[in-house]
Simulated assay, not measured.
Amino acid sequence: MKGNKILAGVLSAGMVLSSGTAVFAGETEASANAGAHIYVLTSTEDHGWTGSVATFAKEKIKEINDAGTYSAELITAASAADQITQIEDILAGDTKNAAFVIQPLDDTVQSAIQEIVDAGIPYVAFDRIIDAVSSTAVSNVKGDNSGIGVAAASYFTGLGMKPGDAVYVYEGDTSSVTTLRDQGFTDYLKGDAEFEGKKIDDDLKWTDDDLKNITYSGAMNWSRSDTKTSFESLMGDPKNADIKWIYAEDDELAMGVLEALNGGGIDDATKQKFLDNGPAMTGCGGLDEYYEVLRGNSYQDIAKKFSGLCSVTYSPAMIQTAIQDMVDHLDGKEVTQDHVIACENVTADNVADYPSF
């Protein structure tokens, strides 16, 4: 955490006098902001993780509108250019009571965000944090990409993974997201990171030589079909059936592995050898299809042969936290500017407690 806090409307005395009555400053700020309109800008609601952000945003927006203190609306965009135009159109109108929650579609939205800042309008950034303007946000809400790798490594270690065991990593793309998810995994194994307040036991730490037994797929482009094809190719060499630990950096990639095992693209003997080894796999994100496997409702002929299946949380529902940060700011409450949402491991034991998309 940067420890940088935004405290709206709080006076050093902690309270002010209004008509001879003591009123907490936060209440004065909330009263002043009553009627504020929150524009929530996200990607188009279509499919996948980014599309589901809008779905969860609508739930929170309804809650705000039903409460009546503030109003809110969702505005979606299919491209960064569209999103920039939307921001400029809003700023061209009456922005006296405006506030923004923005999921920037790419870094080119920086210029439009700067216009919001220049207009003196508060905003919360979600998911894609643009470093050049991050210090101007009320809050920067994001998932912990490094923490995803940390959580996966901790899960495998808990299942008995030993230093130097063969691990195969299915990577998402070539961006910093993948770099961080790779790094978190090895950081935990080396003892340089902790999960839920604990580091790996000293006798289970991996050396640099041990880490050489981790194989990386290269960019799967977050594609289930690309991962399915890649895993079928991997299992084309029967020696690779000895790989026990599969770290998929997204639930879509994990589903690609399951679909490959459920299909006919792998030799039956190799497939049987792989499953008899009691493999374990982690995904990430909260995809409902993968959660259905964890719930015991699909792919059970295959899933029951795994020694463990897990999905690390990185839910599009985090947009609701971003919107709540803006509400808290308008209420005059203290908001953490660098708001990183910790990862949790979702398994068959606790999947009922987590939303999916």
Rank of each mutant, 00 (worst) to 15 (best):
K2M: 13
V10K: 15
S12H: 14
G14N: 03
G14S: 09
S18T: 14
V23H: 08
T28W: 12
T28C: 13
E29Y: 15
S31Y: 15
G35C: 12
G35H: 06
G35L: 04
Y39T: 10
L41R: 07
S43L: 06
G48P: 01
W49S: 07
T50Y: 15
V53P: 02
A54W: 00
I61P: 11
E63C: 06
N65H: 07
G68Q: 01
S71K: 11
T76Y: 00
I84M: 10
T85H: 10
T85I: 10
I87R: 01
I90P: 01
L91I: 06
G93H: 04
D94F: 05
N97K: 15
Q103W: 13
L105Q: 06
T108V: 08
V109I: 03
V109K: 00
Q110E: 15
S111T: 14
I116M: 00
I116S: 00
G120K: 04
I121K: 01
P122K: 09
P122Q: 14
Y123V: 02
V124E: 08
A125C: 09
D127P: 09
D127C: 09
D127S: 08
D131K: 13
V133D: 05
G143Y: 00
G147K: 09
G147H: 07
I148E: 12
L159F: 02
M161L: 07
P163V: 04
G164I: 07
G172P: 14
S176F: 06
T178L: 01
D182Y: 11
L189G: 06
K199H: 12
T207G: 12
D208K: 10
D208T: 09
D209T: 11
L211I: 04
T215K: 12
Y216F: 11
N221H: 08
W222T: 09
R224I: 09
K239H: 08
A241C: 09
D251K: 08
M255C: 01
G256L: 01
L261V: 01
G264K: 05
D267P: 14
K271W: 05
Q272C: 05
L275W: 13
G278Q: 14
T282L: 00
G286Y: 00
D288K: 13
E289D: 13
E289Q: 13
V293C: 03
Y299H: 05
K305R: 15
G308H: 10
A317L: 04
Q320E: 11
H329M: 04
G332K: 00
D338I: 11
D338A: 15
D338K: 13
C343E: 01
D349T: 03
N350V: 07
P355R: 03
